[in-house]
Design a protein around this nucleic acid. Structure first.
Lengths: 333, 333
DNA sequence: GTTTGTTGAGAAAACGATTACCCAATAAAT
DNA sequence: ATTTATTGGGTAATCGTTTTCTCAACAAAC
């Protein structure tokens, strides 16, 4: 098992031509059973492995797809990426992961690189605000799908996302259901399309319960300012607040720790619910209610559609919305 | 910007030979300044991009490296991978990330795929117990480095890890320093070499403070059993316990929530410290002391060494230990 | 017994780059 | 004025596949 064997070596060793070896390997074309066995035997003995560079060059296909993701240390992104990668591998594709850090220039640089590598497809998770595949010269040809944030050009693309709106609606409803009369929403400063949908869900639940939404009264935004101090101010001026829907679990956990520091009891004084169902939600005190995104399904649907595009079986343009699930825990008892 | 241009097109359009175009692109070989400008102009106009499959085939180099990682949704792994990817990209390499899920068969399958793709190098993060690159036929030639877990064959490999031993020693010392007299260690059921080092650090700190280590008295292991119930039993039989060093932050947070549920005050009744310095440590209540691994340095050293190996400038075999930093917070006040 | 069809397999082109080798043309040295 | 270097750049081989053509051999059909 020393040298690297090429198809030519296999041909020689098994006394057939390279064409035949290729046919046997790919099980395509005509050859006798006898030849098959002969060739396969030599392949096993030598430990021959296809040289993908050559194969890619010839077939103009790379059996690899790129994933653009803003931040892989984010739980939701990491989970989706992980699951996508797993499915793709099963389908014979390898995955090139690119961390864009929400930087448009980086996004562009990665796109160029990926195109150079001849990727067969692309998955863009929560791409830049103005994500536009045409920014890269001829990229227009690379099949791609978007997850979590709509691309600039809504036509001719497949977009997959959780039902953030419904999740937020359910979450806020659950605050009301557990006795909250005056819930607010806690957001962070980064804009995202999912965040916008969640905000919309919160508003609609509010109005459904007869409360008009007013940004200055019903929304707080976490900034670099110390969260505890900010919460203290807010609760002093609006002591009626008795429920908080946090735009995601990171925010929720920050809010929770602030509330506890301020001597508030959760859920007795204030109900709290987050979004994303991160693992630590089960281990906060009290445990944190949340909304779970179906990452399995997102990944599955994403890969299915991408591979569909790659094999150009239907270049449909559509938005696919994946249902979410409410995960009630102690913070909304 | 429609069709895909090859070097041949560029040659034609700029009135030179393909060889010259290649020379200009790679700035290697001889050509006049005039020619350079001409060619570069055409390249810019056409939006030409190298076909890496061809280049790889010819040069027998793929400008890509593989990363084997057990679980990318784990914070430490995700952070390291992210940083490695960033540095590699700057060095002109793309990264193929492979999630092994701690499954040896998968590890092997990925290894085969990576070899087929002709990766130039490999980074193995916390590989399987018996990680052995020779399991894949001719892989022996792929330069690789290991992070976090030593490979089977310690010779002729570069191994990079945090100073888990020292971190655990410092962490346990800090329990004593904040007044704990009878600390224990909380571990989980998965074995890891880093875990073993951390356990060693705990033991040595104990002995330094005049306490002999006894597994049955000084160590609890979290299993699928409910942590709160387990903790209750332990605290009933050993009420003297007043400090816990958790093998990592996930365990620490689970323990913390159990303690709070049992009505214990942290840090007043029991001091607690974890390991890894995950972001949520700052937002638990009380905030969680921990030990921070220097992921920046790990990534930097890893890439430097790997690229060193790839360019075979020194095939030194060594273990590189990266210092850690104690992050004291409220749970060990 | 000639024609037709089928099966198995080889020869060679092509994919898009890099590079060793070659040869003009000009410059430098004698 | 001839030889010798140097410079710029073209030709063609090569990397390892896949695939189109081609054809021999044998079987079936007439």
């Amino acid at each position: 098992m020393d040298k690297k064997y090429s198809i030519k070596d296999i041909a020689q060793l098994s006394g057939v031509s390279v064409a035949t070896v290729s046919r046997v390997i790919n099980d395509n074309g005509r050859f006798s059973e006898e030849t098959r066995k002969k060739v396969l035997k030599v392949i096993k003995e030598t430990g021959y492995q296809t040289n993908f560079s050559a194969k890619n060059l010839r077939m103009n296909k790379s059996f690899s797809v790129g994933i653009l993701v803003p931040d892989i240390s984010n739980y939701f992104f990491a989970t989706v990426v992980q699951k996508i990668e797993k499915i793709l591998f099963k389908c014979g594709y390898s995955t090139i992961i690119c961390n864009t850090a929400r930087d448009e220039d980086k996004e562009l640089a990665y796109l160029k690189m990926l195109e150079s590598k001849g990727i067969d497809g692309l998955i863009v998770i929560s791409g830049a605000k103005a994500f536009d595949i045409n920014k890269v010269s001829s990229s227009s040809k690379i099949p791609f799908i978007c997850i979590d944030r709509k691309p600039k050009d809504k036509k001719n693309t497949i977009f997959i996302a959780s039902d953030h709106y419904q999740g937020a609606l359910d979450a806020t409803d659950s605050l009301f259901n557990s006795g909250s009369k005056h819930p607010i929403i806690a957001t962070h400063k980064h804009y995202s399309s999912s965040g916008a949908d969640r905000l919309r869900g919160f508003k609609d639940s509010l109005e459904k319960h007869g409360l008009p939404f007013d940004t200055s009264r019903n929304q707080i935004t976490l900034t670099t300012e110390n969260t505890t101090i900010k919460m203290e101010k807010v609760l002093k001026s609006q002591p009626e607040i008795d429920g908080i829907f946090a735009i995601n679990d990171t925010v929720a956990i920050e809010v929770l720790s602030a509330l506890l520091k301020l001597g508030k009891s959760v859920p007795n004084d204030i109900k709290l619910i987050g979004f994303d169902d991160e693992p630590q939600d089960k281990h906060t005190y009290p445990t944190l209610s949340s909304v779970k995104q179906d990452t399995d399904r997102i990944a599955q649907v994403a890969v299915e559609n991408l591979i569909g595009l790659i094999n150009s079986t239907g270049i449909t343009s559509e938005s696919i919305i994946i249902p979410v699930e409410l995960m009630p825990r102690d913070s909304t008892l």
